[in-house]
Structures are given as C-alpha cells and as structure tokens.
C-alpha cells in the first residue's frame, strides 16, 4: 500500500454475539485531514473507532497506519504509535490538577529510585502551560483542578495533551456533547488548531451541524455500513441529512 493516507481501514467486519456491528467498512484519514464521522446512535461509529484505537480487534479486515499493517492488542499500543482517543468522561480525572492530568501516565521525571520516579514538577508546570498556550487556552495556574474547568476547557486540555505528546491522529468522541453553543465553538477552534499543526483528527458526532464547519471530509455510517464518504466541497448539509435520515 502506498503511503498516501495516515490511516487506511479496509473491509472491517465486527460481530458482537452474533449481531453484526460493522459490515465491510472502508475508512481512511489523510495526513492533516479532519474527518467527520457521523451517523445515528448504533450506526457503528464507536465500534469503528474502538477498533482503530485498539480497544478490540476487528473480526475481519485490515488496518494500515502510516502504510504499515497494524494489529493492536491494547489501547496502549495504539497510543504508542500516536493514536490518541479522547472520550468525554474517560479523558480526565476531575479531582486532579490540569498539570497532573496532562502528564498522567507519562510523567516527567528528574531521576528514578527503584520502581519510583521523582517528578520534575517545575518542568511539568512549565510544559503544561506551554501546551495549553498552543491551543490558546489561558488558565491561571496549572494546579487548578479539572472539575473547576468548563466542558470546553476540558476538551482543550485533552487536545493540548495530545499535541504535547506528538500524536499523529486525534480521535474525538462526541466532543461537543452537552456543551453550550459558545463552548462548542471553542472545541471547533481546538480542532482547527490541530489541523494547523498538521495533526489528523476524526471528529465523531451524531450532530452534523457541529461536524460540518471543520471537517474536510464527512463519512456517514448507518446500520454498520458506510453509506456516504464525501469531500466537503462536493456535498451539502442537506444532502448528508437526507442520507442520514433514510431508513
């Protein structure tokens, strides 16, 4: 396979106890591309994304990342290759500070003693503020607990984290759910920022109106099958909506 796309998923099938969740889906993401993945609840969006992020393997089909075939056996493996998935409630630990959340599991150490690493807190403070500035998120202190932030700011922190750790692909699962119009607008800004930095992203939503403004390409799933894959300039909100509401 030639290296024209970052992600290439070919003929993906997935069954759950006899029920077919995905039926031969082809899905790709180009370098620096924002792909909107839309579809009704139960269309197979999350299943497709969970396969791509290593939560479960496909029953059939192949995944290529940067042109190489991949078999992820855990989300950790996918993350090591640079695939960062941001699930709404699973992205942050609310009671922990912004800084500790950003470096959770990938702490910066000054030195190690046996199994323990001594945290380099001054550097983590500095780096987390820098990372937040890159998404234009200005917080008073890196020690603010995440539960004091708004929903949009939390998405910003998660995206700043993905950028900081040089992810190649950021998957956002319903990032605008339960957010006000203004807050949703901020999340779209974060996604544009990702694109500017050359990082590809997949934006999953059941709300086409949130996806449409930022997406370069829109993929529509329905009942486990891909029923549409359009470059944005070749389509319109009306056309996709019509497709989505078809039985």
């Amino acid at each position: 396979m030639e290296r024209k796309n970052l992600v290439e998923m070919v003929n993906i099938h997935k069954w759950f106890s006899g029920v077919c969740a995905l039926r031969g889906v082809d899905f790709s993401v180009g370098y620096g591309e924002v792909v909107g993945l839309v579809g009704d609840n139960g269309a197979g969006k999350s299943t497709l994304i969970k396969i791509l992020s290593g939560v479960y393997p496909p029953d059939e089909g192949k995944i290529y990342f940067e042109g190489k075939e991949c078999h992820f056996s855990s989300p950790r493996e996918a993350r090591m290759l640079g695939i960062e998935t941001i699930y709404q409630e699973a992205a942050m630990v609310p009671k922990m500070s912004v800084m500790r959340n950003i470096f959770m599991g990938r702490e910066l150490a000054r030195f190690r003693v046996g199994p323990l690493a001594y945290l380099d807190i001054p550097r983590m403070e500095e780096e987390s503020m820098k990372a937040l500035e890159r998404v234009d998120l200005r917080l008073r202190s890196p020690h603010a607990p995440v539960d004091e932030l708004s929903g949009g700011q939390r998405q910003g922190v998660a995206i700043a984290r993905a950028m900081y750790f040089k992810s190649k692909l950021v998957i956002l699962d319903e990032p605008t759910n339960n957010l006000s119009v203004k807050e949703s607008e901020r999340v779209l800004e974060f996604i544009r920022e990702l694109k500017k930095q050359g990082i590809s992203s997949i934006f999953i939503s059941h709300n086409l109106y949130h996806v449409y403004p930022v997406a370069d390409r829109i993929v529509v799933l329905s009942h486990g099958e891909k029923i549409g894959d359009f470059r944005k300039e070749e389509t319109s909100v009306e056309e996709i909506t019509k497709l989505m509401v078809l039985p």
Binding site: T85, A90, A91, V93, R100, M104, R106
Partner: peptide
C-alpha cells in the same frame, strides 16, 4: 511517594477515574 512520584500520580488517577487512568496506560 504520594505527592512527588509518578506512582503517587497513578494512585490519584486510579482512585479518581479508573477508566481514564487505564486509557492513559496506567
């Protein structure tokens, strides 16, 4: 250990939101 090491950070993360901690590879 709790306040100044990576293990302490994992403890807070594990108790605070186990799903998120796991998702980040802890």
């Amino acid at each position: 250990v709790l306040e100044r090491t990576d293990f302490g950070n994992w403890m807070f993360a594990t108790g605070g939101n186990q799903v998120a901690a796991r998702a980040m590879g802890i």
